[in-house]
Design a protein around this nucleic acid. Sequence first.
DNA 1: CTATTTTATAGGACGCGTCCTATATGTTAT
DNA 2: ATAACATATAGGACGCGTCCTATAAAATAG
Lengths: 204, 204
Amino acid sequence: MSLKHAILGFLSVRPLSGYDLKRAFDHSVQHFWPADQSQIYRSLRQIHEAGFVEQEVIPRDGKLDVKIYHLTEAGQSELIDWLRTPLDPQDNREPFLIQLFFSGLLRQDELLALLKHQRSQIDDLLQLYRGVYNASTREVDDADFQRRVTMSLLTLEYGVRLNHAYRGWLDEVIQRIEQGDWSPPTWQNMLGQGDADQGESNDR
Amino acid sequence: MSLKHAILGFLSVRPLSGYDLKRAFDHSVQHFWPADQSQIYRSLRQIHEAGFVEQEVIPRDGKLDVKIYHLTEAGQSELIDWLRTPLDPQDNREPFLIQLFFSGLLRQDELLALLKHQRSQIDDLLQLYRGVYNASTREVDDADFQRRVTMSLLTLEYGVRLNHAYRGWLDEVIQRIEQGDWSPPTWQNMLGQGDADQGESNDR
DNA sequence: CTATTTTATAGGACGCGTCCTATATGTTAT
DNA sequence: ATAACATATAGGACGCGTCCTATAAAATAG
């Protein structure tokens, strides 16, 4: 259900067409929420039917009309309601884990090739993130815009942190398998290398 | 496409019914690949039509037949082929990031409440994982079984590592927002607190 | 000058996943 | 004794997402 709300989020800044929205997605949240063009238009239609946006139709001779979507009050409050709603965390299906889980059917060198390929993929992603970071830290204007840039960087940081952790895990798995170490990891091992923090300070 | 291959994976160990498969999923890979009962049966039908499994039909008076699925040679090689195929990493859509991204419409205390709720959810998950870990380290029999337990623990370790990183990131975001610090994080910040490793050793 | 890209919207087909419901019997809880 | 759960399979409806295709004109690249 997040795509519709992300659209409302963008429209809360200023009115946009479906095409504008596609670009907005591609330029800001694409890293953690890629949006399909078709899906945007379909969602827009549903959002419109629900009364969360109004269409400003701009005719173009011969071609299909351009439709600029304006957030209504109902849309604004729907968005804010959703923003306030705690979501339960997603189960992040990672197909690679299925491969690893059933990799008993592979030879050790095949498994290692798979793991190393995965690691290089993560490295590529991490480098891509770094590029995004470098690009985004160049222009900072007013305070409101600054806040938005920071938000953007926080979500980017999420991506970097998680992929960095992924990379670290892959490294250790590769090391263990290369050394033929099939002993089960300890819980301390699981939390990360030198980390002695037990995380027993749940303040809630 | 991973569900079908996961099913083939389970069937490569021993023939199972749809019902058995559902239990197998729930007891071993549920943490990173929850499987819907209906979806399992549907996939089983498709896998059967593709010739990757054979049905052993066991009639039950009045009730629907029990069908035990046996992996065929075609199925075995399909599985091994897939296991050898490098997959590109998934984009892990995390709805919470959308909320954070558009949280400019919330008051600071509302944002903090959201963040802390998320953190407690992660803590719950982490504790659940710890329970799974404790349960799985109790029984270790033969060497082949040991290998499977270790595989299981490696995937669990993946979950622990990533959620641990998630938690750490949340903690820092909470801290920054509580201190009203809206300055953009540095790249060093992004890679994790005291971590000076630049990860420039891409051997591929 | 031609080919591609950009601007702009939208439908079709299909895959995967979730939730709900139906059917039917035996076995445990309360 | 009755309610709930386990065993076992399967269809319907629906949502979200992806990929492909159509249409059409202007702008830009080679």
